[in-house]
Design a binder for these strands. Structure first.
Lengths: 335, 335
DNA sequence: CTGAAAGCGCTTACAG
DNA sequence: CTGAAAGCGCTTACAG
């Protein structure tokens, strides 16, 4: 490879080459409009020729500002929340921040340590953590907002709100005549998975329905497939609530592989409104989560905290919407 | 919120509190083993109490090293290459680097400008760009490796290698008896999409087959669905080569919606071996790309460049593997 | 409109 | 084994 790297000029060298002082070059890069056109032109020429760009690390060393935020994710996450990231990223940019995505690994303790290190590093002015983790915000020199999985402030008020579509799903299926249910849960390290399981169990109980049980999966299609393949013949299950669309897809496949029609013999619900699920056959019934709103809202909260402003009000309406598609229908005449 | 942020101590203050010099604290954090246990204990206590962690920006200001690499992606990318990111991230960590993911937006010029700014920022020691973009590596003060979409060094030698499975797919379908083909391409701003289209056209021509044409899509299921819905009745197409699994999923759905059986009437191939495609019905025939190898290899190249070492040899065997599943079969007796 | 001085929080030789 | 001095590349008052 032609690894010809440009020698990195300093602001002093640029100033010397342009015949001005280094402060003037500094002003040039901070878009200070008070430069004389002639001065600007001289600097322009040197900058073009040497491809000079200011060292942002040095700048932030001095200004104590970086204009950078970080969003942390578990690298092991089954799937990265692309839509949320995109919305968060857009919001950050609109507010004048660069956003970097940092994956954090290990157990909750190690993850918290890594986040604290990042917080103290001076690289970023705030952190939005999508990682399930216990962190003492007071231990961090910059604001840390934890979202996605659980939120320390919404806890109690809204903790189960995220899972409330499960209630809606079970009620809907019951209204179609389903009586025996089955839940294939996501990884239990996620509060969202635990909450869905909890609400599932509560609702089944409250409505006097039967639950054939809960399979503890890992968010993967394989876990859905295996769970359904593992059901005994004649178990009577006609309604399956899967942790997400991946699990649901596997569950549908598992059912079909046993000769069960979907939704003729068994109905399946997923979660996330994955695009592929919409085009699958049968198309997946699911829960659409407005990741756009979720990402924007979380990032807006972080930015408010960074600026020392009060937190913006949370979105007034639920970001979840149950969508019924082909994979759900009435149970067979006699189970 | 209890936005109680720890006041950020400096190394001097920690030193004073611990009753040592700041250099000693510096050594403590650089794991210098020559500290007396008693000294270490004193520092330990202060660090614990105040949650002090060194300012990495100041450190790298001085050392001119950050131990950080960046990977840049187009935020508009239809889907983030999660598996590749994960492999690249793992490789970086193993080699002692932190990895940050930065999304870059805008047209190719703006993207190149953004990457150059990042390269000059002092924040990172090297950049792996997954963004299609024209950049002069010589204009960057740190190594920039462009991969995924095209690679400046492999161009000519391997540029079309990535698309060679298309040849294999067309040949396979032809061997089953297919004669009339259709290609639904991905977004043409991607070299991979252009290459697949090119190889498709070449192979169809070379084998004396018929192409009903190429639909230019955007990598989305909807584009696959629309393309198939747009085919006239009696067009005779029995074999569809889709740009990726998303497109293929939409194409299958479009075909089924017209009453065409898959694969009875029409066979469909995708690309990427998406997990959901494996569990779809019919399961998708596809191309498995070893993103693990791709991500590790690209990151290893970047790290070698950062260290001024020679580039590691590329993987000796193809990272692509054609997988035949239910969505592909012989054409109907008479088209 | 532009220049000389101080300092952001560290690490690196160099002494002791 | 530990301390005083210099400096990484910028920006921020403060003069002129």
């Amino acid at each position: 490879m032609d690894e010809v790297e440009t020698p990195r000029l300093t602001i002093h060298e640029v100033a010397r080459l342009a015949g001005v002082s280094h402060q003037t070059v500094s002003r040039y890069f901070r878009h200070n409009e008070t430069l004389k056109p002639a001065t600007r032109a001289k600097i322009d020429s040197v900058v073009q020729q040497f491809n000079y760009r200011p060292n942002l690390v040095a700048r932030s060393m001095r200004t104590r500002r970086t204009n950078r935020l970080a969003i942390t994710l578990p690298v092991s996450s089954y799937q990265w929340p692309v839509r949320l990231l995109r919305a968060a990223s857009a919001t950050a940019h609109e507010e004048g921040f660069q956003l970097e995505v940092v994956s954090v690994e290990g157990d909750p303790r190690a993850r918290a340590e890594r986040v604290l290190e990042l917080a103290a590093s001076g690289h970023v002015e705030g952190i939005l953590s999508l990682t399930p983790m216990e962190i003492d915000p007071a231990a961090s020199p910059v604001p840390v907002v934890v979202t996605g999985d659980y939120d320390d402030k919404l806890r109690g008020v809204n903790e189960l709100a995220d899972a409330s579509p499960v209630r809606e799903i079970v009620e809907y299926l019951a209204s179609l005549g389903h009586r025996v249910f089955f839940h294939i849960a996501g990884a239990q390290s996620w509060a969202s998975a635990r909450n869905r399981k909890l609400v599932y169990e509560e609702t089944v109980e409250r409505l006097g329905l039967t639950s054939y049980g809960v399979a503890l999966g890992d968010w993967s299609p394989q876990s859905g497939y295996d769970a359904v393949r593992g059901l005994p013949d004649g178990c009577g299950v006609t309604a399956i609530v899967a942790g997400n669309d991946h699990v649901a897809m596997g569950a549908v496949r598992g059912a079909l592989s046993r000769g069960w029609r979907v939704p003729g013999d068994v109905s399946v619900f997923g979660w996330d409104d994955e695009e592929l699920g919409r085009f699958a056959t049968p198309s997946l019934s699911t829960v659409a989560v407005d990741r756009e709103v979720q990402g924007r809202e979380a990032m807006a909260r972080l930015i408010a905290a960074v600026r020392g402003e009060p937190a913006p009000p949370p979105p007034e309406r639920s970001i979840n919407r149950v969508i019924v598609r082909e994979s759900a229908g009435p149970p067979p005449r006699r189970a």
